[in-house]
C-alpha cells in the first residue's frame, strides 16, 4: 500500500509540474519582456528570448526541463544564472525552521486548548478562548504581524522586527530572530486546530459508548482523553496536516513582513519575473512536502481507527 501511495505521490508531482508549466506559460505578457521590465527594447527582448529558449515550442521546453530533473539537475535560474539547487538550499532550511518552530508551539497548544474547551464547554473559559482565537484567526496575518511588532518590538523592544537570518546565524540567535514570525504564525493557525479538536470531541460525546462509559462512572477527563480523543483523531489529524502544510507553503506574507528569506518570497519573485525553472523547483518542493504530510496523515488516520484497518 505504501508503495502504491508513493508512486501516486510521484504521479501527483508530475501533474503539478505540468500544471505549473502551463499556468506560467499562460501568464499574460512575454516572459522575456517581463524579465527585462520597462527597460526592454525589441533587440534585447529577442536576445533574451533566445537565451531562455522561448523560440522553441512549449512541449520541447517542458521535456528538456523534465529530462534535467530526472537526472537530478534542477537547472539554473534564467534571471541570474545561479544554480537552482544552491539558490533553494538555504531558503528551504529557513522555511522548514520557521514551520517547525511554529508547529512546536501551536500544535500542542491547540490540542490542549481544544481538549479543555471540550471538557469545560460553554464555560467562561470556553467562550473566552473561542473569542480570542477567533479574533486572531480572522485578522489578516500581515496585520497580526504589524500589531505584534508594534507591541513587542517597537514599544517593548524585546524582539527584533526583522528576521533577516543568514546561513551562518547561530541557532540560538536564529530562534530569537524568528520568534515574532513564529508567534504570528501560531496565532494564525492555532484557532483552526483548536476548534476542530473541540468540535470533533464534542461530536463524539453523544455516542453510545461514551454514554456507557459515563454511566459506568468514569470521570469526564478520562472519558475525553481515553475514549473520545482516540476516535476523534481522523478530523483532528487532517486539520493539523492542513495547517502544517500551510506553515510551510503559505507563509509568503509573513516572510515579506519580517524580511525572512524563505521559499515563498523566492516563488513570488520568480513568478513575477517568469523564471520558470525556479518556479517549478519551488512548487515541486512544496508539492513533495504536501504529499509527504498527507501520506503521514492517512497512515495516522488508519492507525487510530481500527475499523478502517479491517473494513467489512
Amino acid at each position: 500500500m505504501l508503495i502504491q501511495r508513493l508512486s501516486l505521490g510521484l504521479l501527483t508531482l508530475f501533474v503539478v509540474s505540468v500544471i505549473i508549466f502551463l499556468a506560467v506559460s499562460m501568464l499574460p505578457g512575454d516572459a522575456a519582456q517581463a524579465m527585462l521590465g520597462q527597460a526592454a527594447t525589441e533587440e534585447t527582448v529577442e536576445a533574451l528570448r533566445k537565451r531562455m529558449g522561448l523560440d522553441q515550442p512549449p512541449y520541447i521546453r517542458y521535456f528538456t526541463w523534465l529530462g534535467g530533473i530526472l537526472q537530478g539537475d534542477f537547472g539554473t535560474s534564467i534571471a541570474n544564472g545561479r544554480e537552482i539547487s544552491e539558490l533553494l538550499g538555504g531558503r528551504f532550511v529557513n522555511t522548514i525552521h520557521l514551520a517547525v518552530f511554529a508547529a512546536v508551539i501551536s500544535v500542542p497548544l491547540a490540542l490542549i486548548l481544544g481538549l479543555l474547551a471540550a471538557l469545560y464547554r460553554n464555560s467562561i473559559y470556553d467562550r473566552s478562548v473561542n473569542v480570542v482565537t477567533l479574533s486572531s484567526i480572522s485578522t489578516p496575518e500581515f496585520f497580526v504581524a504589524y500589531i505584534l511588532i508594534l507591541l513587542v518590538s517597537v514599544k517593548l523592544g524585546w524582539f527584533p522586527s526583522l528576521a533577516n537570518v543568514s546561513p551562518d546565524t547561530p541557532f540560538a540567535e536564529r530562534l530569537y530572530k524568528t520568534f515574532l514570525p513564529a508567534m504570528t504564525l501560531t496565532l494564525v493557525v492555532v484557532a483552526h486546530m483548536m476548534r476542530m479538536t473541540r468540535a470533533a470531541i464534542i461530536n463524539l460525546l453523544a455516542s453510545p459508548y461514551i454514554e456507557m462509559a459515563a454511566l459506568k462512572g468514569i470521570n469526564r477527563r478520562r472519558i475525553i482523553t481515553h475514549h473520545a480523543l482516540p476516535n476523534a483523531w481522523a478530523p483532528i489529524v487532517n486539520v493539523i496536516v492542513l495547517n502544517l502544510a500551510y506553515l510551510i507553503v503559505g507563509v509568503v506574507v509573513v516572510e515579506v513582513v519580517f524580511v525572512y528569506p524563505g521559499l515563498g518570497q523566492l516563488l513570488v519573485d520568480s513568478v513575477q519575473r517568469r523564471d520558470l525553472p525556479v518556479v517549478q523547483a519551488c512548487c515541486l518542493i512544496f508539492a513533495a512536502t504536501y504529499v509527504l504530510l498527507n501520506l503521514i496523515a492517512d497512515i495516522l488516520s488508519i492507525l487510530t481507527n481500527p475499523r478502517l484497518l479491517h473494513p467489512k
Binding site: F142, L162, V257, V259
Partner: peptide, 13 residues
Amino acid sequence: IADVGARTNALTT
C-alpha cells in the same frame, strides 16, 4: 525590505 510597513518599523526600532 519590500514592505513599507516593515521598513518603517525597522527604522523605528
